[in-house]
Design a protein around this nucleic acid. Structure first.
Lengths: 340, 340
DNA sequence: TTCACGAATGAAACCGGTTACATTAACCAT
DNA sequence: ATGGTTAATGTAACCGGTTTCATTCGTGAA
């Protein structure tokens, strides 16, 4: 039923070898023959089977991507960047949603491994050992995660991450200069590697300024978790003196915003709020959210590049910067006072 | 290097045929043998090659999905539903972003066709003929789009759509009962099938009530297009008397919201606003957006079901309903007047 | 005892491409 | 003319599984 290369060869009156060579542009075939073959292929509407080709060449022409949550705009942008960069090279993209579940993620790795040339794991929830193990199946690029190992990295492992330091220290400096003296960080899930990076960056920046930092952990990184955290922050702000909140990502920041409002707090009137990722379209939040921005899309493109050119062991870095909008304001206690 | 079924067979001391049977659970293999083979497979960390299997069985175990824009939350939810439903059956998902470009979409169809068991085209930008042509390669499920053809449908074509009528007529009735007498619909791209459905539903509902409807078309369905449309609506509202706006989708509604605000208009004070898709997380918009809701996720799940069980020619339907929130309010001209 | 039959396993073809190697033919130098 | 190159094409093996068909062996009936 399907039109194979043998039917094309027959139609063109040549052997399958010649047909294959003619279609793949080998120079060892004379022009007149090539024309005949191509004409036959067009006439029969022939499309070569990627499966068969992959089987013999050993390269499949597609890569697998595993994300913790397709729905999250950060991963969506990441995926868009990745897909665009790979699609431009005519490479296919297999996706899997791990639902932040390591077992599921591992199953996806196994499942995909035999039909991709490489795997991109975004914010992987696997253990270092599991990741190293995956490496023995296919080349792997970690995005938004790095191995803890100080030993030499597996040869077939690449890493691309967002460097949160510049953005988060800028955020702390910004809040400090606005007179905020007690910050609260609403963290994401404890296993998250990037969450830890953020905690470190914030802790560093705060201690450099002698500012106290309160860290509030959550189990998920979504709107709902942010909301309950927001309510709690509001309830305890009177005691602990928190006047500014930094959130793990923008979705949680929106949740915090909602939680604070439910508790009768105004942003930025009562508390200032800083998000992360700059994943919200203009005007999507009200007030517009001050956020630590970085391009998830750029991260995706970098990951694509890394999986195609495995050379280079150093981690690829995408920088962050603070994007000041309307959700941060001078601390109430500091209002009217001269600028520091 | 890779561990193949032959190495497993050798290790277990059986032929490849027996190894294959043992692993695929054929009853024609005695238990003791099966155990030996399985042990060998585990010892060698054997994972069967999907490629090789597909080549001979003719079924690949994955489906392709083509979306106009991965970044759009509607398609993201759709994709999430689809991936979840297919993943549960251990079916892989290949994605492609057409960028709303028919040529690109066609290339993706060709590219994927040899490595998937079926194709899901979401809001396809292809012509009816092109879609029918794709059908001859693989079974196709159209999502959010139907063929115009009155002739018999190709046997291998399924359709799943969102039935916009209930939601949109409810929206019109809702606005009408609030005293709005001139509505403006901010449409999406003209080629969009679902856009046409929405125009039809609105026109019908309005004429049933004797309400005039102004339709404003745009070229893209994103925030930016909504914003410029919002500015224009604000500028002309004084002349044409528009007091309520319905948007093609929530992203555009947010754009319209931003555009109106830039022009000094308040929502819902000056104008009421209705979105579509209910794609925004709780509290993501301010004020919370009244919207015509339907579950893109459910549509994705239905598409997954349809591609797995091709039986049934009738289009699958996902209903819509109006979700009233805070962006719609009694028309200013009508305030203080008794409720109709 | 012999034969038929069925159960368990093995040998080999096959899926649709690519590619190493063999073959043919044409051309040039001797 | 003859032998050696080289260019163009053909033959067949191969990728890693599945599946058809053949083979072997044990068992029960004749």
């Amino acid at each position: 039923m399907a039109t194979t290369i043998r039917s094309v060869a027959a139609a063109a009156g040549v052997s399958v070898a010649t047909a294959s060579r003619a279609l793949s542009g080998s120079p060892a075939v004379v022009d007149s023959t090539r024309r005949r073959v191509i004409q036959a292929a067009i006439a029969l509407d022939y499309t070569p089977s990627r499966l068969a080709r992959s089987l013999v060449t050993g390269s499949t022409g597609n890569v697998g991507v595993i994300l913790p949550d397709i729905t999250n705009p950060f991963y969506t942008s990441f995926l868009a960047g990745l897909e665009a960069a790979l699609g431009a090279q005519d490479i296919g993209v297999l996706i899997g949603d791990s639902g932040e579940n390591p077992d599921r993620e591992n199953r996806l790795v196994r499942r995909m491994s035999t039909q991709v040339d490489g795997l991109v794991l975004a914010s992987s929830r696997l253990s270092d050992e599991q990741i190293v193990a995956a490496t023995s199946r296919r080349p792997v690029v970690l995005a938004n995660r790095m191995l803890e190992t100080s030993e030499e990295l597996p040869k077939r492992l690449g890493q691309v991450v967002i460097d949160v330091h510049p953005g988060f220290t800028a955020a702390v400096n910004h809040l400090s200069s606005l007179g905020h003296r007690q910050l609260t960080y609403v963290d994401g899930p404890a296993q998250s590697w990037s969450g830890r990076q953020k905690r470190i960056a914030l802790t560093l920046a705060c201690s450099a300024l002698g500012l106290p930092l309160r860290i509030r952990s959550t189990t998920r990184a979504d709107f709902g978790a942010g909301r309950t955290a927001g309510r709690q922050v509001a309830a305890e702000a009177a005691q602990d003196g928190t006047t500014a909140v930094i959130a793990f990502n923008d979705q949680m920041a929106l949740g915090v915003l909602a939680g604070l409002r439910e508790a009768g707090k105004d942003v930025p009137g009562d508390l200032s709020l800083v998000g992360c990722d700059d994943s919200l379209e203009d005007g999507l939040a009200w007030p517009a959210l001050t956020t630590v921005g970085s391009s998830a899309r750029a991260l995706g493109e970098l990951a694509a590049h890394k999986i195609l050119n495995p050379m280079g062991q150093e981690a690829g870095l995408i920088p962050t910067a603070l994007i000041v909008r309307d959700s941060t304001e001078r601390a109430r206690s500091d209002r009217g006072a001269p600028v520091a």
